[in-house]
Computed example of a mutant assay.
Amino acid sequence: MEVLTIRNIIMKNSNAIFPDIDYHFWLSQYNWDNIGTVRRMITNMRNRGYLNAVITPENITNEIKTEIQNYLKGNDSSRLRYIFLLIQTWGGASARIHTPSIYEQWEENETEGIYLSFVNAVLSGDYVGSFHVLNQVHGIGPSFIAKHICFWSGKGDRQKGIPILDDVIAKTIYARRHAIRVSYGIFIGDFEKIANEKKLKPAEVEMALFAFCREYWETAKTATWEFKPQINENSKDYDQAMLIVKRFMGNNQ
């Protein structure tokens, strides 16, 4: 009789379909430094007086890593508010509405305690539990919760952390419009499996997929017919992009 472990349950109930693309090539094309929404978010936070001119799109990833590693050396909870802000800023302009109020009311809304519990859960390896903990903070959606888990699980190293489940991945791999429609636990298992097959880290698979999507869709709006005008049938992995469109349009949820 087969023993139904958590891993077996995860894989049995997964509907993930990973495109047959050159993951190593697309990983080499990944670049977060030139994401326009990150630049706008940095400007927004700087104008509010939260960030200084030292933070740029080119160094914010390393700044997050440095701050998390400094926290891990001394467990100084006073650092958490700034780390939270950096990760929200790194995530881009879609966080601009709620981030200021969360940052300004950090103690009043007990966010500091929730975030500390979240960090401890991530560091203990309880990624699904940590997801539910941070979900208690109003204004942080699933995609941004996943970004915080990514950095903390990698101890500041984005490539070593749990991959980020966002709407791009939901559309590309699961044919779902939004990340909220994908089980986080199933997602982790799926990416661990494909990463082993491709001899990459799970986050590197996600990064490769993001680069692939940026190549084909405006602002990475995957699984729609909104191809970039310059894309043609001779572009790399074009056939896989078309398969994603076909699958998504047939299961647009």
Results as ranks from 00 to 15, higher is better:
20 D>G: 05
58 E>R: 13
214 R>C: 04
166 D>S: 13
97 I>N: 12
201 K>S: 08
71 Y>S: 04
118 F>Q: 13
190 D>V: 04
126 D>R: 15
18 F>R: 01
232 N>S: 08
226 E>T: 12
200 L>Y: 08
192 E>K: 09
151 F>S: 04
107 E>D: 14
232 N>V: 10
179 A>T: 03
61 T>P: 07
114 I>K: 15
33 D>E: 15
64 I>E: 04
63 E>Q: 15
124 S>L: 13
175 A>G: 06
192 E>M: 02
11 M>S: 14
223 A>L: 08
114 I>A: 07
62 N>C: 04
108 E>V: 01
171 K>V: 00
218 E>C: 02
214 R>S: 03
71 Y>G: 09
107 E>A: 05
128 V>R: 10
223 A>H: 12
197 E>M: 04
130 S>M: 06
27 L>R: 13
82 Y>E: 13
231 I>L: 07
150 C>E: 04
45 M>F: 09
61 T>K: 15
121 A>H: 13
115 Y>M: 00
242 M>S: 04
114 I>L: 03
37 T>C: 13
244 I>N: 05
31 N>P: 09
29 Q>D: 01
167 D>P: 09
241 A>D: 09
236 K>W: 01
250 G>K: 01
33 D>Q: 14
179 A>N: 10
73 K>A: 15
60 I>G: 03
136 Q>L: 03
21 I>W: 04
225 W>P: 08
165 L>M: 14
114 I>D: 06
157 D>V: 15
194 I>Q: 03
2 E>F: 12
200 L>Q: 10
197 E>V: 01
31 N>W: 08
115 Y>A: 02
235 S>I: 06
39 R>L: 02
8 N>S: 13
130 S>A: 14
68 I>S: 05
65 K>L: 08
12 K>N: 14
